[in-house]
Amino acid sequence: MPNWLPQHRYNQIPGVGFVMPTSSTEPAAPVAFELWAHPGTGKASWRTPGGTWIALDDVADGAVTNAKIAARAGIALSKLATNPLDRAQHTGTQLAATISDFVTQVRANRLDQIATAGADLNAGGFRWTNLGAPQGPNVLLDKRAGLDLHQLRHSAATHLGDAEIPLQLIMGKTRHKNPRTAMRYVKPGAEAIATATDVLAPRRRTH
């Protein structure tokens, strides 16, 4: 078998029956682009200019770039150095419109699951309906559906007026500054009117 030391030109004549050197150990003095086959692993490798052996079915480190990855390549997340789905990698602000189930998830949460409000709540002119029975002195609940804060204020002033509470105290409770405004809410009930009628009614003579 001839031993060609210089390059040999084949003049585009295909080589037939070529077999690369096979050994269980690396060649003694490898050069760049030299081929070598390992019979134990069954892999053929080539020598890089950097002095390392790369299997022909493998890819050199750094050779795969973003431009070389197909748009539909199925790469497992475990193969990535950073998991893009990890919450720790999420920065900035994401618009609610870009979250497919945002509205569904928010509506699924009860009010007692939401953080305590740090300011006054604005109902936008709408009423709180289907309220239950009061559970404590600091709970704003009522048995009657459709009762709003304005009606509660009106009702409280009316009950205080029926109880013969002075107007000044009623104003302090309802926080009215103008007596005329407070008087709009102080409407005596049927019992108060009946009591006033009894006072004005003439006394019957007794014999």
Rank of each mutant, 00 (worst) to 15 (best):
R47S: 02
A44N: 01
I170Q: 01
L152H: 04
T158I: 04
A123N: 13
I54D: 00
L35N: 02
A182T: 06
F18Y: 14
L35R: 02
D86Q: 09
P21Q: 14
A32G: 03
P188K: 04
N130A: 11
V199W: 10
A182K: 00
L169P: 00
T22Q: 14
A60R: 08
T22V: 13
G132N: 07
L77P: 03
V199Y: 11
T41N: 06
F126D: 13
A108Q: 12
L77E: 07
W128Y: 11
A70M: 09
S78T: 12
P14W: 11
P39Q: 05
I99H: 07
R153H: 05
H90S: 06
G74W: 05
D57E: 12
L85D: 11
P30M: 05
L80I: 11
A44F: 02
P84Y: 05
V199E: 15
R184S: 04
W36P: 00
A67P: 01
Q151L: 10
G17L: 10
F33K: 09
R205L: 15
T129R: 11
A117C: 03
A194D: 12
W36I: 01
G62W: 02
T181I: 05
G132F: 08
N11P: 02
L140A: 14
A190V: 10
Q105N: 13
L152D: 05
T116R: 13
A70P: 02
A133N: 12
T93R: 09
K143E: 14
E191Q: 07
A29M: 06
T91G: 11
P2K: 00
T104L: 07
R205K: 14
F102I: 05
L152M: 12
L169R: 10
Y185C: 02
Q94P: 00
T41G: 03
L200M: 15
K68S: 15
D112N: 06
V199C: 09
V31D: 10
R110M: 08
A190E: 12
A28H: 12
I170K: 00
K79F: 05
A157S: 10
K68A: 14
A201G: 04
A108C: 06
A192M: 13
R203D: 12
A194W: 08
V186E: 01
L5Q: 14
P14V: 07
A71I: 06
A73G: 04
D120T: 09
T129N: 14
W53G: 00
V64I: 15
V16F: 13
L169F: 07
G146D: 02
A76T: 13
V139H: 14
T104N: 14
H207F: 08
A192R: 11
D148F: 06
R110I: 00
T98C: 03
K79R: 10
S23L: 13
P21L: 12
T91W: 10
A194M: 12
M1Q: 07
D57V: 03
M1K: 04
L77S: 07
T195W: 06
L169T: 08
M171Q: 01
I165E: 11
G136F: 11
D120V: 13
P188H: 12
R204P: 01
N122P: 01
